[in-house]
Design a binder for these strands. Structure first.
Lengths: 228, 228
DNA sequence: GAGTGGTCTAGACCACCTC
DNA sequence: AGGTGGTCTAGACCACTCT
């Protein structure tokens, strides 16, 4: 049989790209397509569902299935642990805890985490090394209210790996940007002030409250790459 | 009935997070789970397949289903058209074609596109505007060998939108990085040389050959954001 | 109200891979 | 060789939403 759901997906995609079904067009419903391809409706459904997930089709009950007008392209990136990232390059990973203290965070941090003003957080500064060279400068705010006690020695285990193992989280967001190296970052990474650094910021939440906000300043030359 | 595939996904996720099924653990097979949840095996399959796709489970025929040791987190981001991106902010989009010429590209460009040395490409420089202010400085290499003729006036329609409408492409990759503004970028964007710019680079391919390589230098302050 | 996609079932066969 | 996940079928009911 030549009609697996992947075959059907490929054929539908071909018709869209060949403009037999132009953008905005209503395509036949699942039952008709199943008839045409000589397969069960569930098989057509699987194929069309995948295409809708990829942003190629738009589906609504009763309204039917349309070719997306603006094919929003989606990219998926993996967010590995820094240790994995370093080891994947064939380098050895290490890190140094530069600073740890408990303090009241600045207002922007508290508000991004949705915390009352005056709540105390743990602040960490960590430098990650690849083959002994500075790789990432990490600044992190931790909400001790939602962490299991006792806390570990963050000089021995990196905060991220400890969190992964001991706190189950549900949602979060990631943002990427570019910023000039400030004095603290320049010193830690061993680069000139003002160099362009690739910045990753992540916020992590349990169902109830914020767990952590982390900012990673990557050494110059860092790239995030993905396949579409 | 409380056992939709989403319920089952949620319950499996709960057991993993509660460490009833710790990382690396082999979980019951689909048939046993179907029995336990009182549903069909296909329903369990759907739930576990989604979790495997999200990187929470690892599945292999005969070997069974295991809780992933290193839950590689995946983030999905949308890659909109620049025009959509500007309009989504409630601003008006415009652009200026600054430069167009046909020339032999530098070696790094040719090799990234997998072209023979000496092949001629079209080179474009475009400045995108949001409410009249510089937003993105775009430099683009186009492979005329795979483009439908005649080519449009790229001063009237942006290259990206024309490509979307007239060339069906199959694969590509995207990379993000941070770089200091060079003289050309600084002038076009109206910022000081050396400012940190967020850079997006995309390569696009048909099944046979490279279509385009585009580099977007975003104005300072630009962020790419996503939900996990 | 009615047409469409979303999901579930029970059963079957197959591809793959570990044992 | 046999167990596991991957997929397909034929049918059914349901949820949504457009008319």
């Amino acid at each position: 049989m030549i009609n697996s759901w992947e075959d059907i997906r490929a054929e539908v995609l071909r018709r869209i790209r060949a403009r037999e079904w132009p953008p905005g067009d209503l395509i036949p419903n699942e039952e008709d397509l199943a008839l045409e391809f000589g397969c069960a409706r569930a098989t057509v459904n699987r194929a069309l569902r995948e295409l809708a997930l990829a942003g190629v089709l738009e589906r609504r009950r009763k309204a039917g299935t349309r070719v997306a007008m603006l094919p929003v392209r989606k990219a998926t990136l993996d967010i590995p642990l820094i240790r994995q990232e370093v080891e994947a390059r064939g380098q050895s990973h290490g890190f140094q805890l530069l600073l740890q203290r408990e303090t009241v965070p600045p207002v922007p941090v508290a508000s991004r985490l949705g915390l009352a003003a005056g709540a105390r957080l743990i602040y960490l500064e960590t430098l990650h090394l690849a083959d002994g060279q500075p790789f990432v400068f990490e600044t992190r705010w931790l909400n001790p209210a939602v962490l299991p006690q006792p806390l570990p020695d963050f000089g021995q285990i990196s905060a991220n790996e400890w969190l992964l193992a001991h706190v189950s989280y549900t949602t979060g967001d990631i943002a990427f940007s570019a910023e000039e190296a400030g004095p603290r970052e320049a010193e830690a990474l061993g680069v000139a002030e003002g160099r362009a650094l690739f910045i990753t910021e992540r916020t992590t939440w349990t169902a109830e409250a914020a767990i952590t906000l982390v900012r990673l300043a990557h050494s110059p030359g860092y790239r995030v790459q993905t396949m579409v």
